[in-house]
């Protein structure tokens, strides 16, 4: 009798469900705190970024004069970019009122480019400056690599631009098409220029292992973050020499932030790219 009563009351212990709920609650709170409350990500790479910022102050002095020469190429994209967005709209409807609005802003810009080149550098310098700050030493190398390509393209661009005023009276649409083409070539020009800058910057950071036979080649796939930080580097094709592979991989991380065009529209070209380095080039 008493044993039965005791058995029954033992089963009816108070707060079984309540204590289970409280136990669960404590674990959920604790793990929630661990997952969301603490910063588990350790970024030892950020310290490298800090080191690079210290290097930057002297560099603008070196790079500014250098940039003035290619200014002829660089300045154009910036003023032209602003009208770029409205352009797609006029082409589709090809309506007269839209055309009338667009030409006026373009004409002045074209005229200013041809007639008054000196004032531009001042405007452009302001806009271009942020680029040299981010891109330290390798810049001299960029010019060598970038110029030959860009100079040719500039000539191509300048030619249609000069023709434009003559054609304007006949057909405004041709003008639009020509400008679009010019922008494309400028964008390609920019991309090529920055690719060369990235190559040059990484190459300058490679500490090559000595005495490798032949000219081995290593290929990496590099994933960038906006701003030029390196997100991921994966080996696509090994050179066969682990020391050289690792030297190049280290150089990629050492070179960050990589130079990237200030125009965010061009960044998608740099999100993922393949980087090929030859041993003889890196020496």
């Amino acid at each position: 009798m008493t044993t039965l009563a005791w058995r029954r009351t033992a089963d009816e212990e108070p707060g079984l469900v309540r204590s289970a709920a409280l136990a669960l609650l404590i674990h959920i709170i604790f793990f929630g705190f661990l997952v969301f409350g603490l910063n588990w990500r350790n970024d030892p790479n950020e310290s490298m970024v800090v080191d690079l910022w210290r290097d930057t102050p002297p560099q603008p002095v070196r790079s500014q004069p250098v940039i003035k020469e290619p200014i002829k190429e660089l300045p154009k994209p910036i003023p032209v970019q602003e009208p770029v967005k409205p352009k797609p709209e006029p082409i589709q409807p090809t309506s007269e009122p839209v055309r009338i609005k667009n030409p006026p802003p373009r004409k002045p810009t074209i005229e200013i480019k041809e007639k008054t080149e000196p004032p531009k550098p001042i405007q452009e310098e302001k806009k271009v400056k942020p680029v040299p700050e981010k891109t330290p030493k390798p810049e001299p190398v960029k010019e060598k690599v970038a110029k030959p390509e860009s100079v040719k393209e500039i000539e191509k661009k300048v030619a249609p631009e000069k023709e434009l005023p003559e054609k304007e009276q006949k057909a405004v649409e041709q003008d639009v098409l020509a400008q679009l083409a010019a922008q494309k070539s400028k964008a390609l020009d920019e991309i090529a220029k920055y690719k060369a800058m990235i190559q040059a910057k990484i190459r300058s950071r490679i500490v090559t292992p000595p005495d490798l036979p032949g000219n081995p080649m290593v290929e990496f796939r590099v994933t960038l973050l906006p701003g030029g930080d390196v997100l991921k580097v994966s080996l696509r094709k090994s050179s066969g020499y682990a020391a050289f592979d690792e030297a190049v991989e280290r150089a990629i991380f050492l070179a960050k932030p990589l130079p990237i065009p200030p125009d965010p529209a061009l960044f998608k070209e740099f999100r993922d790219f393949n980087l090929t380095v030859y041993y003889q080039d890196a020496l």
Binding site: V35, N42, P44, N45, S234, D245
Partner: peptide
Amino acid sequence: MSATVTQDMSL
């Protein structure tokens, strides 16, 4: 070989 240097260290 492809050492991802920025490891995801979340719990």
